[in-house]
Design a protein around this nucleic acid. Structure first.
Length: 620
DNA sequence: ACGAAATAG
DNA sequence: CGTTCTATTTCGT
């Protein structure tokens, strides 16, 4: 009754089992996988003047992440240093491992975080296998990995946990009174065995070790995994919630963490919370002091602080610019509650970007040179990552992405369409002469529609690069930096974003849904009409800068507008439609004597192609 | 749609 | 603290 200032703790729902993977020292492991002889040597991966990561052999000698090269060499003169500024190999390895792991998922909930982490929701797999258990002989269980093939799986002892536990289990006695399929303990047991299987499979088949956490949420599985690195696994044991107001294992575990270590609580939020908990002082928090006087504010400090409640958090963290619901989110996190879903597996990223950093970059000529490098590798990447052999296999996509020599000539199609081009820079702070620090390490950016010619498959990469620079990037750069000089850039980034049809699964409808796709295809063709009504030649040419060295003859045809009511697959990206059209390229082509647009893959009769191309030239 | 910010590895 | 090279999501406009 008392309007207790204390809000109720958020409700737990521990009905899922989630596995978190963290590949051990990933960048170094990629080089080791390429060249196993490196495994026994101290190995460090360099970007610019720092070690971004190193293997455990190197760590034994005092090396660590984000260490200056000089320091590392001094500490360990015989360290093998490899350059890791080009991320291609890491990206490819990451995708390969991800594709491997996600095959074990039944619900397709497999979310990548950065290059070296994956969340897997295995709730359904666990549930299925609990039903298979024989309560009288748990020690001789068989974990079934497929609902279709009962022989696919591995034997295990369901009565005991695989790997480490937290809190560390003193006695490995497990009392299973019958098999309650809702028992968190038994579900975690199965989760731990699946995790161990996944780890050994990853090592045997791919040559990578991983550290794994097993729990009921992304928050808990990720944090608990950290307890046994490398090449280990840890399960957070129940009870997550104690019966009578006591502290369950979930809260007890999360309580000990420094507030900024909680995923979702970044430096800004952590700062605000620390300031509030440590009452007044603005706090020297992690400053330039290595001495050790580090004021730690733990989750427990925040959670048990007398003034902290839900409304307080909303007020404290809900300022302008902050995400709506941050207060609730943090309130849940400090109570070890995280209901966020593991994301559905995605086949295409939602953004592709390339960047480089510079010690000095202050002339247009230099910028142009760097823009050329960046644009070229971006276009290459867009082609590599977004172009797929349309020669359909109907099988599981082979993980071997590195089948060089694409034999099927011209049989490629775009699996996604970035629509926006973005140029970002990070200007070096103006550098005040009066010895004061000028602080700004922020990026500024301009974006514009991505010219569609980059999807053309006939022009050379170099030609595309030049066009992209003169028609888009240079004008954007002038918007960012109108002055000819007076700036100095420490970073330049070029990105394509806003993938049409990327986020959803344009590829989930494979195989058996053919007849409905045929029907949709027929409907589409029936309603399809092209009006060739002319449109006034008022197309603005403002994209072109005054000084572009572009010959008028190579400018795109901007004199006429295409009609708007034509078949454009990317217009309706709600499930099924585009997949239907795209997947039918081969078959439909001959029957209707239609052509496929090389830009978007849309099928259409030859007579429509000209107008359709005009449509692309004017952008969506 | 655009540009910035916050968070993550 | 930031150093690198990314990537995702959300906010205000």
């Amino acid at each position: 009754m008392e309007a207790s200032r204390r809000s109720w703790a958020p409700k737990r729902r521990d009905d899922r089992i989630i596995i978190h993977f963290d590949y051990d020292c990933f960048y170094a492991a990629v080089f080791e996988a390429e060249n196993p002889a490196l495994r026994s040597l101290p190995l460090a991966v360099q970007q610019k003047h720092i070690i971004v990561t190193c293997n455990y052999e190197a760590r034994r000698r005092g090396l660590h992440k984000l260490q200056p090269i000089n320091e590392a060499k001094k500490l360990c003169p015989d360290v093998v240093i490899v350059l890791g500024e080009d991320l291609t190999r890491f990206r490819n390895a990451s995708r390969e491992l991800y594709n491997f792991i996600r095959q074990f998922s039944w619900n397709n909930k497999a979310e990548r975080l950065g290059f070296d982490e994956v969340f897997l929701d295995v709730t359904d797999v666990i549930r299925y296998n609990i039903e298979l258990l024989n309560a009288n002989d748990l020690a001789n269980s068989f974990f079934c990995l497929s609902q279709n093939d009962p022989t696919l799986g591995f034997p295990y002892n369901a009565a005991e946990l695989a790997g480490h536990a937290s809190p560390a289990s003193t006695a490995c006695q497990v009392i299973l009174n019958g098999i309650d399929p809702d028992s968190l303990l038994i579900r975690l047991h199965l989760g731990s065995h699946l995790a161990r299987h996944l780890r050994t499979q990853l090592e045997e088949h791919k040559g990578y070790t991983a550290t794994i956490g097993i729990s009921t949420s992304k928050l808990l599985s990720k944090l608990v995994g950290n307890l046994n690195k490398p090449n280990g696994q840890t399960t957070l044991l129940p009870p997550y919630e104690a019966p009578e107001g006591g502290t369950g294992n979930a809260t007890a575990f999360i309580d000990g963490h420094e507030i900024g270590k909680i995923p979702g609580v970044g430096c800004k939020i952590a700062q605000k919370l620390r300031e509030h908990i440590l009452q007044r002082p603005a706090e020297i928090d992690s400053g330039l002091v290595y001495g050790g006087t580090k004021e730690k504010v733990t989750v427990r400090d925040v959670r048990t602080h007398p003034t902290i409640n839900l409304e307080m958090l909303d007020r404290l963290l809900g300022g302008p610019g902050s995400h709506r619901g941050t207060g609730v989110r943090v309130w849940q996190l400090i109570h070890a509650v995280d209901d966020t879903e593991v994301g559905q597996a995605k086949e295409v990223p939602s953004q592709i970007s390339i960047e480089d950093s510079y010690i000095r970059l202050d002339t247009i000529e230099e910028v142009l040179k760097e823009l050329r490098k960046l644009a070229k590798s971006l276009i290459k990447r867009v082609h590599l990552d977004l172009l797929e052999e349309s020669d359909d296999d109907t099988g599981i996509p082979p993980v071997a992405e590195h089948s060089k020599g694409s034999t099927s000539l011209g049989l490629r199609r775009w699996i996604a369409h970035p629509k926006t081009l973005r140029l970002s820079t990070r200007p070096r702070p103006p550098l005040n002469p009066d010895g004061t620090r000028a602080r700004s390490f922020n990026r500024i950016s301009r974006s514009a529609p991505l010219p569609t010619f980059i999807f053309g498959l006939s022009e050379s990469i170099d030609a595309l690069t030049e066009r992209l620079i003169s028609e888009a990037l240079l004008p954007m750069f002038r918007k960012l930096h109108p002055d000819r000089s007076g700036w100095d850039l420490s970073l330049v980034n070029v990105a394509v974003t806003n993938m049409a049809d990327a986020a959803g699964d344009s590829k989930t409808a494979t195989g058996r849904d053919i007849s409905s796709m045929l029907r949709k295809q027929a409907d589409v063709l029936k309603e399809w009409r092209v009006e060739d009504r002319p449109v006034p030649p008022d197309a603005p040419a403002e994209v072109f800068g005054k000084n572009t060295s572009m010959p008028a003859s190579s400018r795109p045809d901007d004199e006429r507008k295409g009609s708007e009511d034509m078949l454009v697959p990317s217009q309706d990206s709600r499930n099924g439609f585009e997949g239907a059209v795209w997947d039918l390229e081969d078959g439909a082509e001959e029957q209707v004597s239609a052509l496929a647009c090389e830009i978007c893959g849309a099928i259409m009769p030859a007579f429509a192609m000209l107008a359709h191309q005009r449509f692309h030239e004017l952008g969506d």
